[in-house]
Design a protein around this nucleic acid. Sequence first.
DNA 1: CTCCCATATCGTAATATTACGATGTATTTT
DNA 2: AAAATACATCGTAATATTACGATATGGGAG
Lengths: 108, 108
Amino acid sequence: MGVTKTDLFTEKQNQMAVMAKAFGHPARIAIIEHLLKTNSCITNDFVSEFGLAQATISQHLKELKGLGIVKGNVEGTSMCYCIDSEVWSKVQENFESLFAKFDCERSC
Amino acid sequence: MGVTKTDLFTEKQNQMAVMAKAFGHPARIAIIEHLLKTNSCITNDFVSEFGLAQATISQHLKELKGLGIVKGNVEGTSMCYCIDSEVWSKVQENFESLFAKFDCERSC
DNA sequence: CTCCCATATCGTAATATTACGATGTATTTT
DNA sequence: AAAATACATCGTAATATTACGATATGGGAG
């Protein structure tokens, strides 16, 4: 066990869960916030700014890149990361449509 | 290792990550969606609706309850679960303020 | 009181995540 | 070419998550 039974849920629900995982670690939140603020690029910025090892930052970036939220292109000897606006908008839409389902009248 | 270094990040970033984890599993997404739609209660509904074992559903509900997103009160022999509107609004706010930071001009 | 019913909790196994040192790779500098 | 810089990837250890059977608990029904 320990493996999520994705076949029991809808495509949308599984996607939602996957996207949420992107936000499920403070380092990734910090990376995203940093990119949203400065659209800056250099991976090493993160390494020196947060206290995490370079390998760890690289791993988090890989995850975000895998989800499409972030994309990177080579910039000489370093790496230029930024938010993919299309994917970001889609993620935003999904979260907002979930929040929109809330009916205050019916809550407790 | 395997333990998140929360001390390296801000309180807000850590909170955000924790909240995101609530959405980080399709079963919890499904539970939340169900509660948003019907505000219905009975735990057993989830057990029969999804194909997960009762213990597993109970575990997911416990997590959501621990985060405050969901609260439950006894209803005879069963359990009445619903969304806590105050907590839900706070979560919504946090996500929306993150999304609001996106500047389309600056993306790539 | 005894038998169900719905839930919770415990124990445990399988898998996923987090983290980092070591090492590989590509580009720039000297 | 050699050294330095910036990242990526590999291997691995520690911990977290997911799932479920078994077992407890706390009512309501008979």
